[in-house]
Amino acid sequence: MKNDTPEKQLTELCSKLTHERATWNHINENGCNDPFWPDGCNMNLTRNHIISYKRDIAELCEKAGMSLPEEYFLKIPPEVDDNYMANLKQQARVDRLKQQGDKLSLKKTKFVDDGQLEFG
């Protein structure tokens, strides 16, 4: 990606950022299939990716003298309980996580993605 134009790099970073936001929402609603970590841990990792992409976008725009794109101002999903599980339907996975000592929680975190942009 370093050999691409700044515009192409920006497009790629914006695409990755929006993909990670969609991933966070999907895990929050449906869970994931990670055999070793609860959904909340994966959601927080995804949140960190979003923060990292926003930082990369800001650095690229500053370096290239470009305006920040709309995607930069999209809300960052909240941090969640690492032991959050969207559901307990994957019995083998749930049992394995409990054997690791995880105290699983079904308390869903509300994230209102109302399309409003954040400035700040």
Rank of each mutant, 00 (worst) to 15 (best):
N3I: 08
D4H: 04
D4R: 10
T5D: 01
P6L: 13
E7I: 02
E7L: 10
K8T: 01
Q9L: 05
Q9V: 04
Q9Y: 03
Q9F: 00
L10S: 02
L10Y: 09
E12P: 03
C14H: 05
C14V: 12
S15V: 02
K16N: 15
T18A: 09
T18G: 00
T18D: 07
H19Y: 12
R21F: 02
T23M: 08
T23K: 04
W24Q: 10
N25T: 13
N25Q: 13
H26S: 04
I27G: 00
I27L: 15
I27C: 04
I27W: 10
N28Y: 02
E29Y: 05
G31F: 02
G31M: 07
C32E: 05
C32H: 00
N33Y: 08
D34F: 03
D34T: 10
P35W: 09
W37N: 07
W37R: 11
P38I: 02
D39N: 11
M43W: 00
N44M: 04
L45G: 06
T46D: 11
T46M: 08
R47K: 03
R47E: 11
N48E: 12
H49K: 14
I50P: 00
S52R: 15
S52C: 12
S52L: 10
Y53T: 06
Y53V: 11
Y53M: 09
Y53L: 14
K54I: 07
R55D: 02
R55G: 01
D56Y: 09
I57M: 02
I57V: 07
A58C: 07
A58P: 06
A58Q: 06
E59H: 09
E59W: 01
L60C: 12
L60E: 14
L60Y: 08
E62D: 15
K63C: 02
A64K: 06
A64I: 06
A64T: 01
A64N: 04
M66C: 06
S67D: 14
L68W: 11
L68Q: 14
P69A: 04
E71C: 09
Y72F: 15
F73G: 10
F73W: 12
K75L: 13
K75D: 14
P78W: 01
E79Y: 12
D81T: 08
D81Q: 01
D82A: 11
N83D: 05
Y84H: 08
M85T: 06
M85L: 07
A86F: 03
N87R: 11
L88M: 15
L88Q: 06
K89V: 00
Q90T: 15
Q90F: 08
A92R: 08
R93T: 04
R93L: 06
R96L: 03
R96F: 11
R96M: 05
L97C: 05
L97N: 02
K98D: 07
K98M: 12
Q99E: 14
Q99S: 14
Q100L: 15
Q100G: 10
G101P: 04
D102Y: 15
D102T: 04
K103H: 12
L104N: 13
L104T: 11
L104P: 05
S105N: 12
L106D: 04
L106C: 05
K107M: 14
T109H: 04
T109I: 00
F111W: 14
V112C: 05
V112T: 13
D113T: 08
D113P: 07
G115D: 03
G115Q: 08
G115H: 06
Q116D: 14
Q116I: 14
L117F: 12
E118L: 02
G120S: 07
G120P: 04
G120N: 13
